[in-house]
Design a protein around this nucleic acid. Structure first.
Lengths: 139, 139
DNA sequence: ACATGTTGGTAAAGGAAGTTTACCTTGGCG
DNA sequence: CGCCAAGGTAAACTTCCTTTACCAACATGT
């Protein structure tokens, strides 16, 4: 078994679970592309261009995501007071609740993994993945 | 840092690297959706429906991927002699070369990870991920 | 034997989501 | 003041998946 599949399959499973649980929790408008926004760290106070780069999509694509989330009441775009044409994305109360819910779901997933693998093995796994994260391997 | 991002980011990095290296190696037609075909184990001798289920997409979507790969000369679909309406996907020489190249790229990635983390830590990481793979967590 | 259902495969139309192209606004700078 | 770069937005296009529909080859019941 090669490292590609070993990482990809669990990552996909977590992704599906997050979306499913979010929908079940009442955030029924949230779908796959919206997750580009809610990835850590959240979009609160950021500018659209920064969010686009972070998510690895074009500014235009990010703008479509932002517009749909704004329509659905998850965030709002306001003018940045000091910096020219720049705008700022702010989560609404509903957006903040969705973000907190994602965090809760991930906590629950981590708990299940810790039970399944044992807390020690799960801790080792996270430690190793953090070393990968901090290495040049993922650049 | 939560487990979702820790798995997702390296998995995406590997995915981008595979496609980039494949294109650089002369397989310029291969793009994201084509990877659904070349995931382990390869498509050689399989039927379209099985490939669709394995990739998690509909039979129709898989059929479009197969057609584009057939047009590009990576595989061919032939009638299965014994089993009724069933058809069989066969890699051409070019398709087999692409598959082998993917394998080489993954081997190279694993080598780089082993150097970066140390062989022992990398072995531990794979062992832990295999335990996840075999658990009900990813179902 | 033959009508019917099931399985496997394919094709066309529709929709979701990202990119390319183009444009507007703001502020910096000669 | 005129020009240009940066940031943001919008429209058109492309890609790719799903929905819907259809066809062919068995299997089965009567």
């Amino acid at each position: 078994m090669l490292i590609g599949a070993l990482l990809r399959v669990p990552a996909q499973a977590i992704h599906r679970r997050i979306i499913g649980d979010l929908n079940a929790a009442g955030f029924t408008e949230l779908r796959v592309p919206h997750m580009a926004i809610f990835q850590y760290p959240g979009p609160d106070g950021e500018r659209p261009g920064v969010l686009a780069e972070r998510a690895g999509i074009s500014k235009q694509a990010m703008n479509q995501v932002l517009r749909s989330l704004e329509t659905a009441g998850y965030l709002e775009r306001s003018d940045a007071p000091d910096h020219g044409r720049a705008r700022i994305v702010r989560l609404t109360r509903r957006g903040a609740m969705a973000y907190a819910t994602i965090h809760d779901i991930l906590r629950d997933i981590e708990h299940q993994w810790a039970v399944e693998l044992g807390p020690r093995a799960f801790g080792n796994l996270k430690t190793l993945l953090i070393r990968v994260w901090e290495s040049p391997l993922v650049r």
